[in-house]
Design a protein around this nucleic acid. Structure first.
Lengths: 133, 133
DNA sequence: ATAATTGCAAATTTTTTGCAGGTTC
DNA sequence: GAACCTGCAAAAAATTTGCAATTAT
């Protein structure tokens, strides 16, 4: 639990129990949307309100603690901020895997006349399991 | 206008005036969200309803006529389906540019144990104009 | 002629807001 | 103790639904 407190403080946010719980559920799930966070966190803190989640999702995104992962046709999911990576999204089971971005790939994404700040790469397809079933 | 009718029929959709108008506004804007489509199309067909746009956005996506472009922190935009490409999204002015995906980039995105169906690459940063102002 | 589509109004779902009371540093 | 957070309830925004009338093929 110490890590979440530190993480929040490092990013200029007060460490409330609600925030650490939200981070814990995001960390645990890997990628999770607002409703799912609500369901998770309510188990331990039944008084937590959805409004608090919305407010904090926005704040924590703003302060660089978490990152939005938009999913085609569904609600965005959120993940803890970590080293740059891309997502393999299974169109059958919905699983999202993190995958390192090849250094070669990065090089090829350098474009003239565009000052790149961050990249968002989602690959849609079939995960290993779903290919064989 | 002929093109939109053909485009719809080729994809097993009846060519209604509402649909061709929606496609026209998407085509004209390049990338546009639901509200913006509504504002645009209403100028010519004031009786068009938002519900019709929602219904058709889903259908046309499903039938491969248009594609969703999720934008961090904003409502998704839509574009006509065209050759695979990526998006350069300006964090200052909001402009979205299409950009060809380097063949090299594509190669580097081939991952073991994942059957790739489609890729979604968004690069966030500053466009040429906004760098110099 | 048939099946599909539209527009409306209402329902539902999702997200935001204001504020009194409570908490963190 | 000052500034910030939370939960609630209510408001606002976004999306979906059912159905009678209309339209495309």
């Amino acid at each position: 639990m110490k890590n979440y407190i530190t993480l929040l403080k490092e990013n200029d946010l007060k460490a409330t129990i609600q925030r650490t719980s939200i981070l814990k559920s995001i960390d645990h799930a890997g990628h999770i949307n607002v409703d799912e966070i609500y369901e998770e966190v309510k188990k331990q803190y039944p008084t937590l309100s959805l409004a608090t989640i919305y407010k904090n999702i926005i704040l924590m995104q703003h302060n660089g603690v978490i990152i939005e992962v938009p999913i085609n046709g569904k609600k965005s999911k959120y993940e803890l901020k970590k080293d740059e990576h891309m997502h393999l999204i299974c169109q059958k089971c919905g699983e999202i895997q993190d995958q390192e971005i090849n250094p070669q790939t990065k090089e090829t994404l350098i474009i003239e006349n565009f000052q790149l700040k961050s990249s968002q790469i989602n690959l849609y397809g079939l995960c290993n399991k779903c290919q064989n079933s």
